[in-house]
């Protein structure tokens, strides 16, 4: 079953599985992607998440949920973690966990905020900060499936240095043809960027999204205020509420 994307409706019991850290990609100063090997992983869809459990040597455990940033690939499960300075789990994952160390994972979880390669509708992805993580899994799933479904990504981020997956998004592989990425910088734009730093607006969504009459599926992920603003704007632009899927993904409590 390795690599088989599940249907989204989960059946059977999700058990904790030992996950060994296989590879690390430094994404920014405060975030890295962790690729774990999980023997017997059942597969997952772009947008799903996974529960992660750490166990201290006195038996104390802590659990958190993380979105996967890559589609299923054999026994490989990749998450991208942003450090929350006063967090309990994320500093350990970003600063301490080493290749060969093990954690436990349980999943995949969540069958709503997912993109299925069989869905022909155009896709609008709107990510704020680390909310781009599950959207990246959808982009990579599209690539892996050889899909030609048109994708548009609007990525709102504080500064150029905070961009996750920067090289892949700025210089996309040829297989990402049909993916258009637009950037909104909220604090500091790169030299030569058009426009001043600003929070995402209705006109960003009009300029870089899809018209509602194309009936795209919209995925919005980010901090609460961002998700509320974008989802409300999309509804105001005529997108039916049931075509706007949202997920909160913020630093709070991680």
């Amino acid at each position: 079953m390795a690599g088989t994307a599940i249907s989204g409706r989960l059946t059977g019991r999700l058990v904790w599985q030992r996950a060994t850290l296989l590879a690390v990609t430094e994404e920014t100063a405060g975030a890295r992607s962790l690729a774990f090997e999980v023997p017997g992983w059942p597969g997952h869809l772009g947008g799903q998440h996974v529960d992660l459990r750490l166990t201290a040597d006195d038996g104390y455990t802590a659990q958190r949920s993380y979105s996967m940033s890559a589609p299923a690939g054999g026994d490989l499960v990749t998450i991208t973690v942003q450090r929350v300075d006063d967090g309990e789990v994320s500093p350990y994952l970003v600063d301490q966990l080493r290749i060969g160390d093990a954690v436990e994972l349980r999943g995949p979880v969540g069958g709503w905020f997912v993109w299925r390669p069989t869905d022909p509708a155009p896709v609008l992805l709107v990510g704020g900060g680390s909310g781009v993580v599950p959207l990246m899994a959808m982009i990579r799933a599209r690539r892996a499936a050889g899909s030609r479904v048109p994708f548009r990504l609007i990525y709102s981020v504080r500064t150029p240095a905070d961009v996750l997956f920067a090289r892949e998004l700025r210089q996309p592989p040829i297989a990402d043809g049909g993916l258009d990425t637009a950037w909104v910088y909220t604090r500091e734009a790169p030299a030569g960027a058009a426009g001043l730093p600003h929070r995402i607006t209705l006109s960003d969504l009009t300029a870089h999204g899809w018209p509602a009459d194309l009936e795209p599926m919209c995925f919005v992920c980010g901090p609460t205020g961002f998700v509320e603003a974008v989802a409300t704007a999309l509804v105001d632009l005529g997108h039916p509420a049931d075509r706007v899927k949202t997920e909160r993904f913020g630093p709070s409590g991680s």
């Binding site: 659990q63 998700v227 509320e228 997920e247 909160r248 709070s252």
Partner: peptide
């Protein structure tokens, strides 16, 4: 079991706020 304390009030919803 498996929970942690927050003083925040996170918002979780699957779609736009009605």
């Amino acid at each position: 079991p498996g929970q942690y304390l927050t003083t925040d009030f996170p918002v979780l919803s699957a779609g736009p706020t009605p």
